[in-house]
Design a protein around this nucleic acid. Structure first.
Lengths: 253, 253
DNA sequence: AGTCAATAGTTGTCCTACAACTTGATCGAA
DNA sequence: TTCGATCAAGTTGTAGGACAACTATTGACT
């Protein structure tokens, strides 16, 4: 039962000046250790006491991290026995219930993500956009039409509207290029949740270009992204080509 | 700052002999207090210290409960400030990321749930079912074909296969009648998670009866329900009629 | 072999104390 | 007044120690 700080573990506070609470940092590190299969699925991970020793934090902090991972479905904590790795690692990472960028998800699925922009412009909000973004009609939004690719094949067409509000002009340009969430992060804007509505759509009016599917069958993900305090920042309608993208949801109590 | 146990609160241990840990009981009670709008959306709830006094438990227990609710997206806890009610109560309850029976969801949406059984029989597992349920091909399963109604209108057709395993014969009959999960509960079987796959389907071969939609457009929810230890117990393919049932997902980090 | 009791290990809860952060009030200077 | 800094009170985050409740294994006994 020797307690020694494993030198292989990246230290906590020093990694990046501390981005979030201690428990959050520990949670993220344990998360990657689980997802990289450091412990086999179904296997017991070290006790809270041991982990506290490894990370040099209190048992409270470890417990908070473990509970969070249990809530995400990655762990199964049993009173008096221990914490066990659930056997759904990959599915959870790809699950819709986790808010992550489509690009990242595609990359983790082993494909090469890509994106082509058809429309990127600043214009007044439509009635529908104004309603969803809780702004006045006609107020400026950044409107985009993009095709999302995986290994050069179109997997989805996305129609997005970002509320401008106080966004400086120069930063708006960046969104039209790389990752939208990357641009958000630079501005200190962090959407922490999204409300998504799912529909089955059969239409020939969706999409463009030669990669456009003939079936016309799509899964529409109608999303609204929110900040911590509940302010909506982006409304996006993404049409996923049926069959080319796996939609998984991990449901828990 | 007077700490008095509110007499309106149901006591914890006495309610039902204690179904789960203290923190879980507190979580459930706080959850209903939130969903019944005891505190307005966006408003601050009492401090951990106050709640500990109300429920006569330690601050640790309250913290555990609050953290769980935060993970579910019902609360927003801010360091140094307090815990605030998120403005997504209804959406979260109806959200797919929460594992609840369709019947309950329909009822909470204000409709009268119903169900008609077309097929209820015990037969050997098909190759696909055997694979999903992790049993041998031909082993007995309870197979059902049901139509799910809301206010006497068909919202979905479901094709389900339940792994029999040690289930006593008489209990199998009950599943064919009322709620499947109700029958599970009586047997002490509690599915705690499900992995769902979503597809858009356009087909005229789905469904039956005169309520069958003409469009032939469905959202297929292909589910597999698991026990705590990862044993699959039920595989169900549910075809939701596009437009008649709102599919929402609450996505969080 | 089978049953039961003891035991060590693990998670759940409690207590106390303090650190870190947020918010509003207070006060002083421009 | 108006702005800004400072302060104080309130709240969440982390620490450490202690014990209760539960699990799984071992070992003794029948």
């Amino acid at each position: 039962m020797a307690i020694a700080k494993s030198p292989a573990l990246p230290s906590l506070a020093t990694t990046k000046g501390g981005r979030g609470s201690l428990a959050t940092q520990v949670r993220d590190q344990l998360r990657t250790r689980i997802l990289t299969h450091e412990w086999n699925e179904g296997k017991k991970i070290p006790s809270e006491f041991d982990l506290a020793g490894q990370y040099q934090v209190s048992r409270v902090t470890i417990r908070t991290a473990l509970k969070a991972l249990e809530a995400q479905g990655l762990l199964d904590i049993r009173h008096g026995s221990g914490a066990y790795v659930a056997n759904f690692g990959a599915a959870i990472r790809a699950g819709l219930q986790e808010l992550r960028s489509i690009t990242d998800t595609i990359r983790e699925m082993g494909f090469e993500p890509g994106m082509t922009h058809r429309v990127v412009k600043r214009r007044g909000a439509t009635a529908d956009e104004a309603l969803r973004l809780q702004i006045a009609e006609g107020e400026p939004v950044l409107y985009m039409e993009r095709a999302i690719l995986a290994d050069d094949e179109v997997v989805a067409y996305s129609y997005d509207a970002v509320a401008i509000r106080d966004t400086p002009e120069k930063s708006i340009g960046e969104m039209g290029k790389g990752s939208v969430f990357g641009a958000f992060a630079k501005l200190g804007i962090f959407p922490v949740r999204a409300l998504a509505e799912i529909h089955a759509i059969s239409s020939m009016d969706i999409g463009w270009g030669k990669g456009r599917p003939k079936s016309g069958l799509y899964l529409l993900l109608k999303q609204l992204h929110f900040l911590r305090d509940g302010v909506p920042v982006m409304a996006s309608d993404t049409y996923f080509v049926e069959g080319r993208f796996q939609f998984i949801i991990h449901r828990t109590l």
